[in-house]
Amino acid sequence: MAALLIAVVGLGVVAVPTLDLHLGMPDDSTAAPDTTQRKAYDLLSAGFGKGFNGPLIVAVDAPAGTVQTAADQVAGQIRGLDNVDAVTEPVLNQAGDTAILTVIPTSGPSDTATEDLVRAIRQQDGTAAGAAIGVTGLTAINIDMSAKLGAALIPYLAIVVGLAFILLMLVFRSLLVPVKATLGFLLSVAATFGAVVAVFQWGWLADVLGVDQVGPIISFLPVVLIGIVFGLAMDYQVFLVTRMREEYVHGTPPREAVVAGFGHGARVVTAAAIIMISVFSGFILAPDAIIKSVGFALGIAVLFDALIVRMTIVPAVMTLLGKTAWWLPRWLDKLLPNVDVEGEKLRHQLDDAPESSPVRAAEHASA
């Protein structure tokens, strides 16, 4: 019980920074200080302000003959917004129904204030003489991509975890074992996000890991992290608990089944986890901040899931649950197909087979 509480509380504390997770696409501010793109970014920021590195392109669409008036009105409205450094004069197309103007924010491309400005400009749509307003440019595109990936994260996680829950329920013929497996995975992922936020967004231990510039977490990292780590976590889970299930089905008491299954699988899982941690940690030495963050996230995720969740939480919970861990409602037991991973049905068939049957003869011949 003590080991379980320490592990759960520890991962929970590490997961707290996840509440401040800010996703974004990379810009030149996150490049290594000695690269040309970073030097150019710093020179432009020093000479013209951070927002000069991420201008916003605003398109104003209005009926021909009214677009100039509408564009001037939109430009005036944008100048009155917060975090606006400059707004250029509108440039009209040849048809006279569309105007483009450039907005220079005060904040940098990856700052939260720039995202707020993009939303504020889009809220002006339809307020200027019925004109339609659109915001584009690399900075706005990156903000939209981050928002899309962030919105897809919960459905993606629900589908992955839900399908895995069903498969684990089929394999282990239990409700509590899949629940424990999925909750353990979610806990390790939350702790991983917390560690990533603390290092690459807040700057904790940044000097130790060689992180030169903190900022938003790359938008695709959560999707990649969940996909890879979930596969590894379920491998470790199935490898450990399958042996426990085999021992229990073959008559071993629940506590002894956990000890036997853990004893057979712990060293293999630990060795596999150490290999994966070593491989992923090698990417932390890369000068690029994106590669560094991906390597750190994958390495720490395997550390949390394999060595804390699977090596500590899983056997502790299985021991505490005892026989209850393998409970499955009768109606659900009848409804689910019996995969029989342990081969228990085959063993009963061999035991019940007559001595003269081909099955029993083959058994004696092999003996």
Score class of each variant (00 low, 15 high):
Asp235Gln: 02
Glu363Asn: 15
Gly130Tyr: 05
Asn142Phe: 14
Ala206Thr: 09
Val87Cys: 05
Lys345Phe: 11
Val60Ala: 11
Leu21Lys: 04
Leu44Glu: 14
Pro155Gly: 01
Asp34His: 15
Val171His: 13
Val309Ser: 07
Thr127Ser: 14
Ala62Leu: 14
Val118Trp: 06
Ala86Pro: 04
Tyr41Trp: 15
Glu256Gln: 14
Thr182Pro: 02
Thr36Tyr: 11
Gly150Trp: 14
Ala191Asp: 06
Leu209Phe: 15
Arg347Asp: 10
Ile308Ser: 04
Thr192Ala: 05
Val224Ile: 14
Val13Ala: 10
Ala2Phe: 13
Ile313His: 02
Phe165Ile: 12
Ser293Lys: 00
Val67Glu: 01
Trp204Gly: 10
Ser174His: 07
Val214Trp: 08
Pro55His: 12
Gly265Tyr: 00
Gly76Leu: 02
Pro155Asp: 01
Pro358Thr: 06
Val13Asp: 00
Pro17Ile: 02
Phe52Leu: 03
Arg245Asp: 09
Ala113Asn: 08
Leu335Phe: 14
Thr136Asn: 06
Thr242Leu: 12
Ile104Phe: 08
Val229Ala: 08
Asp116Pro: 07
Val118Pro: 02
Ala365Pro: 03
Leu19Asp: 00
Asp125His: 13
Asp305Tyr: 02
Asp305Asn: 05
Leu176Val: 14
Thr319Leu: 11
Ile217Gln: 08
Val268Ala: 07
Arg360Lys: 15
Leu101Ile: 12
Ser146Val: 01
Gly184Asn: 07
Asp27Lys: 01
Asp28Ile: 00
Lys180Cys: 10
Ala152Asn: 12
Ala286His: 00
Phe220Ile: 14
Asp235Glu: 07
Val269Ser: 02
Leu157Gln: 13
Gly130Leu: 09
Val135Tyr: 04
Phe185Asn: 15
Leu175Glu: 05
Arg360Trp: 13
Glu247Tyr: 13
Val269Tyr: 01
Val359Tyr: 07
Leu332Cys: 06
Phe296Gln: 01
Val91Tyr: 03
Lys345Ala: 13
Ala325Pro: 09
Thr127Trp: 05
Arg330Val: 09
Pro254Trp: 01
Asp305Glu: 05
Asp352Glu: 15
Ser146Gln: 07
Ala260Gln: 06
Leu167Cys: 07
Ile228Val: 15
Arg310Glu: 09
Gly12Met: 12
Leu4Lys: 07
Ala140Phe: 09
Asp333Gly: 10
Ala31Arg: 13
Gly126Trp: 14
Ile228Trp: 01
Ala273Pro: 00
Val135Cys: 04
Gly231Pro: 00
Phe283Ser: 07
Thr69Leu: 15
Ile78Cys: 06
Asn53Tyr: 05
Val196Thr: 12
Pro26Gly: 03
Val302Trp: 01
Val179Trp: 13
Val317Lys: 09
Asp235Val: 05
Val60Glu: 02
Ser146Thr: 05
Pro55Ile: 11
